[in-house]
Every structure is written in structure tokens, then in C-alpha cells.
Design a protein around this nucleic acid. Structure first.
Lengths: 184, 184
DNA sequence: TCAAAAGTGTTTAACGTACACCCATGT
DNA sequence: ACATGGGTGTACGTTAAACACTTTTGA
């Protein structure tokens, strides 16, 4: 599990690593601002964002009282080659438990995000940091009945290739409508 | 399940009912501001607050772009006789599904709070809006092993008086430390 | 041929759910 | 006496958890 950090180009904390972010503009919603900053600073777009928490200690920014509304997204690492831009020197992925010292209170934000993930996402080894039983995992996930088996298989791996599945959006929506709720 | 509303004394939406709240002051944290506003407008203090969500649509306040960091608290109704003050004409409890039309986007905030409660709090009939089986409820709660039976019983009720229990903070903290997590 | 992950069933334990009657108290 | 909520045990079904070997593929 990795986290995307940017190296700050501007004061305060110029040169330090930090979570990507910036100020909301006039007539911009919070989520739109989060998307814009992510795109500007890392080149990543079109992701599902979820609001995490709002941090507002008066002393968390040395300049003045800045309130940060944090969002997080989960993306597949290999789909997102990052490129730094505008007010970041560079952007790079770090292991969540292996980050440099971060600017502002961004370590608290990262910790909160990791906690949230661990309590919400119950079937991903990289997030839970523990191996899962394959048979039980398949039984459970297939029982949800929201996956469609495809003809495709994994390519270029040095072991038996895994069969690939497609997410059945329609069935998922139906389940949600009938009150059922689950997180993968 | 009731929600505490205040009748606004000032523009915008003077005379309309709304959730208690106001602006964060210089050198004040978000939670401190929420506590101060709650106390000023309703007389309620010393409660457990939890951050709910941050609302930031540019058009949610007719004056200018105002971002609201919402908090909620759960209190026992009978412990909190409310009294209006400062910028509220009056404060009163309303059934959550029986509120007047609210100022700003406060209906969205209330809805979000109710949703959050229903998904977090799994053993309170008033929140789930459905009766629970008493035997199963006791079995489950007592199995958590965080309650201590006291000698006290309920007073002045027109039926058999219920035995009262105390919450075992120490045992609860130990459970939390060993990774266990539950919500009542 | 070796390493590495994919794939496959069964058994057991834990937990959730359904269900009906008597008890204590105030009106 | 009656209305109201308190208090109690068991049986059944569902879900979670434990567990080992064969298959496929590239290096």
C-alpha cells in the first residue's frame, strides 16, 4: 500500500514532502478543489474521492489558521504514472509505513486515512497487512454475486495465470437499492 | 430520536429553524468552536462530539462561500433542558423525521447525521426505528463484558424497575488496545 | 525442475435470529 | 385488575474460520 506525496516547491516547508493539496477557489466546491489540486500536482484524474476528515487546529499552518478538508482516493498503482507539476518539484509513491517526515500535520492526516481504510476495507491483504485465506476469500466474494467471469486471464506472470472478472454494476446497484451494504 | 434546533434571530433566514452553529474564532479549533456555539445557543455543554462531514458548495450560503464543518453529539433528552441564548430566539427538540423546513442546506446535514447514526449504532431501537429482541440484545451486550451490574434500579416507573449497570471504562480500553472495535 | 501464485471442498465453531411466558410496579 | 415494560433459555440456520493438495506458468 503506497501513498502519493509531492515535494513542495514553495514556502512554507519548501523542499519537504507533503500530501498534494491547495486552496479552494472562488465558486469552487471542496471536492472540485481536491480534484483540481490532485490533477495539477500529480497528473492523476478521474478517480473516486471520499471525504476523510477536516483538520483545523489553529497552529497547524505557520502562516495563519488554515482549515484542511482532506479527501482520499484508491487507485491501482500501475495505472497511474505520476508527473509533478505547478507548485510541486516532484511527485512519488511511498510505502504508507515508510514515508519521510511530512510538512504541516500531514502525518496525522495520513494516519487517519490508513485507520479509515483498515476499518472499511476488509478483504485486501495490502490494507489489512495480513494474509487472507484464498478459499474463504473466493467463497465470500463470489457469494456477493457482483462479479462476472470473463474470458481474459492475467498476462506475463511467472506462475499460473489468474482468471479475470468484471464488476457487475447493475447487480451492485440493485443490491444497494434493496438496503444491502458492503465494502470490499 | 430528536434533534435540537434553534430559531434564527439574525439574517439570513431570520425566524427560520436551523442547526445550532456559527463562525470559528481566531485561534480557536473547529471542535472548540462547535462546543462554544452549542453552549451559547442552547445551554448544552460537556457532551461527546464527533465530526460528521464538511459541506462546502459555493451556493449554500446566500451571503458568500461558507464552509461548514458539522459535528454531532448524542445526549439523553431528559438531562438537557434547553434554553436559547445570544443569536437564537429559542431552541427546541424536534422529532428527526418531523422537522420544519430548515435554513441553508441544514436538511442535508441532518440527513447525513441520521444516516451515519443508523450505520454506526446498531443496538438502539430509537435510532434503527425498529424493535429489537430483548433476549438477544442482553445476550449480545453482556457478552461484550464491559458492563458492571450495580445495586441501583430504575425509580418511579409504572412497571417492574430495570436493574442499572455501569460502563467498565477499563475493560473497554483494554479491548480497544487489543485491536477490538465495536459501536453500541 | 523449481519457484510462485492459482484454484478447489469439507468440517467445525461462532454468531445471529426466532420465539413465549412470568415478574414487578404504579395507576 | 390491568397496563407496561423487565427479565429469562433454547433450538436452528447462517456465516466465519481452519485447513492441504494439485495446477499452471515463466525463469
Amino acid at each position: 500500500l503506497k501513498v502519493l506525496l509531492i515535494q513542495r516547491d514553495l514556502e512554507p516547508f519548501a523542499g519537504k514532502w507533503a500530501l498534494p493539496g491547495g486552496f479552494v477557489r472562488v465558486n469552487e466546491s471542496l471536492e472540485a478543489a481536491a480534484r483540481r489540486e490532485l490533477l495539477e500536482e500529480t497528473g492523476i484524474g478521474r478517480v473516486y474521492l471520499e471525504q476523510l476528515f477536516t483538520f483545523g487546529r489553529p497552529d497547524r499552518d505557520p502562516r495563519e489558521h488554515v482549515v484542511t478538508v482532506s479527501y482520499y482516493a484508491l487507485v491501482k498503482l500501475s495505472n497511474h504514472r505520476v508527473k509533478a507539476a505547478t507548485d510541486a518539484r516532484q511527485a512519488a509513491w511511498f510505502g504508507v509505513s515508510d514515508t519521510p517526515k511530512l510538512a504541516f500535520d500531514h502525518e496525522s492526516i495520513l494516519e487517519k486515512a490508513f485507520e479509515r481504510l483498515k476499518s472499511k476495507v476488509r478483504y485486501h491483504e495490502t490494507i489489512l497487512e495480513t494474509p487472507l485465506d484464498k478459499r474463504n476469500f473466493r467463497k465470500k466474494i463470489l457469494a456477493l454475486d457482483v462479479l462476472i467471469e470473463t474470458e481474459e486471464i492475467q498476462q506475463d506472470v511467472a506462475h499460473r495465470a489468474a482468471r479475470l472478472y468484471r464488476f457487475d454494476e447493475a447487480k451492485y446497484k440493485q443490491l444497494r437499492k434493496s438496503g444491502y451494504h458492503f465494502e470490499i
